[in-house]
Structures are given as C-alpha cells and as structure tokens.
C-alpha cells in the first residue's frame, strides 16, 4: 500500500515539476505565441487552403482535422521536451540514480501535457466556431470531450517514445518537427484518407490522431458515442502501444547508459 502511495506521489510530483520546469522559462507572451497564435494561424492557413481547393462548404473538414491535430503540439513537442529536458539540464543521472518507479516517473512526464493539449484543442475548435463558422450544435459534448482526451493521450504516447529518442540524439527538433508535419499529411487532417495511396493509408492507421480526427468529424456531424467507440478504443490502444514502446526504450537506454558510462554524454 505504501509503495502505491509513493508511486502516486512520484507520478504527480514528477508531472508537475517537469511541466513547471518546461514552461517556467517562458514568459506569458511566449506561451501565447506558441499555444494560441501559432495554432490559430495553422488552422486558418490549412482551412483557407482547403477551402481554396475544394470550396467553402468543406471548411469544417479542415477546421476539425487541424484542431484535433493540434493535440500534437503538447503531445509531441511538450512531452518530448519534458523527457529530453532531464538530459539537457543535467538531472538525468540523479533520476537514474534513484530507486523511483520508472513507469510512474516516465508516464508522469506526459500528464500535464495531456491536459494542456485538451485546452489547446478546445481553444482551436472555438476559433473554428468564431472565425470559420464551425457548427457544433449537433455534437454530443461528452463524446467530443472524450475524443479530445483520447487524441491528446495517444499523441502524448508518441511524444513519450520520441522523448526517449531525444535522450540519444542532438537533432530532436528535426525529428519532432518532421513527425509533427508528417501528421498533417498522414492523419487525414487535410487530405481524405481514401485518396491516399494504400501504403500511406496503412501508415496512417498505425499513427495516433487518425482515428480521433475521424471520430471528431463523425461526432460533430451528429454521430453518437456508440458509433465512434470502436475508433476511440483503437486510438487508446495505439496510444498505449506507443507508451509501452517508449517505456521499454527508456529502460533499455538507462541500462545501456549505465553499462557504457554514457549517461549524459552528447
């Protein structure tokens, strides 16, 4: 019982500290630029491009796709930087030196980014309503909220895996940016999946966000939670697979770093 309490405390303390550490150096203006202006501009850019390509009537397709895709801002950039931050700030040896439960420590890094990501997606949908006429009147709020939670969970799973890679590479921003922008193509945010070649569709279904975006579109069109449940369950499974893959990689890196004495060598 005591170990469960300890692990829960570790989870929340680690989650809070890593989040505060990541954003402490940011002024409110940097936060607003990265989390409000950039997402708004991205939605507007791809929605206008989509409307130019296929007509004003399809605006909601692009608004919803890009709003949900913004879960990746927190899920990928935030989580990766939280994991990698320990290496950059020199705290990794201390963490690896403690007997703390690695799973609680590792997964805790994503916790606040899931919440932060949800706020970001809700804000993005609000921009869609205010500026691009997105109609949410047919949406079941509970189902939509659950979809947003699942989207941020699965992208954070991918972020945890990428975060591990940031422990061994210097070019983490190259990898993060490439994955983030690739999701704009593969997730179906801007291009209907059915129009992609078969191999791209296969990749798309193995990525987070693809199912959340499809589910969000169905819910906003008036679909019920039961109708999108299979998509959401699969998205949760995808997220869990990424988290487990990241966790095992994290443990493997820890073992290798200790064996070779390369814990924080760049």
């Amino acid at each position: 019982m005591r170990s469960v309490t300890l692990n829960i405390r570790l989870f929340f303390q680690g989650a809070l500290l890593s989040y505060v550490a990541l954003f402490r150096w940011l002024s409110p203006m940097t936060y607003l630029a990265s989390k409000v202006l950039m997402p708004l501009a991205q939605i507007l850019f791809f929605s206008f491009l989509g409307m130019y390509a296929t007509g004003q009537a399809n605006a909601s397709f692009y608004v919803i796709g890009n709003a949900i895709q913004l879960a990746a801002v927190s899920g990928i950039f935030g989580v990766t930087m939280s994991i990698g931050g320990d290496r950059w700030e020199g705290t990794l040896p201390y963490l690896f030196g403690t007997p703390a439960n690695r799973m609680a420590m590792f997964v805790g890094r994503a916790f606040f980014h899931v919440l932060d990501g949800m706020v970001g997606v809700v804000l993005a949908l609000m921009w869609g309503v205010l500026l691009l006429g997105l109609d949410l009147s047919h949406a079941n709020p509970l189902a939509l909220g659950l979809t947003i939670l699942v989207a941020t969970f699965s992208t954070s799973g991918m972020g945890l895996l990428l975060g591990c890679i940031s422990l061994i590479t210097l070019n983490v921003m190259f990898i993060n940016n490439t994955v983030y922008f690739s999701l704009l193509v593969f997730s179906g945010a801007n291009v209907p999946l059915s129009t992609l070649p078969a191999w791209m569709q296969s990749v798309a279904w193995a990525l987070p966000l693809t199912r959340s975006i499809a589910a969000a579109r169905q819910i906003i069109a008036g679909g019920s939670l039961a109708e999108v449940a299979p998509l959401l369950w699969m998205e949760v499974l995808i997220g869990a697979i990424y988290i487990l893959a990241g966790y095992f990689l994290f443990r493997w890196f820890e073992r290798q770093a200790k064996l070779r004495g390369t814990l924080d060598i760049f």
């Binding site: 940011l26 002024s27 940097t30 409000v36 202006l37 950039m38 501009a41």
Partner: peptide, 15 residues
C-alpha cells in the same frame, strides 16, 4: 518580447 512571438509569426505571413 518581440522575439517571443517568433513561433507565432510563421503561418500568419503564409496567409
């Protein structure tokens, strides 16, 4: 303070 808006200035100019 202006540089802090750098991240947010990319897409607006595209538009």
């Amino acid at each position: 303070d202006v540089q802090r808006w750098q991240n947010g200035l990319e897409f607006p100019i595209y538009i």
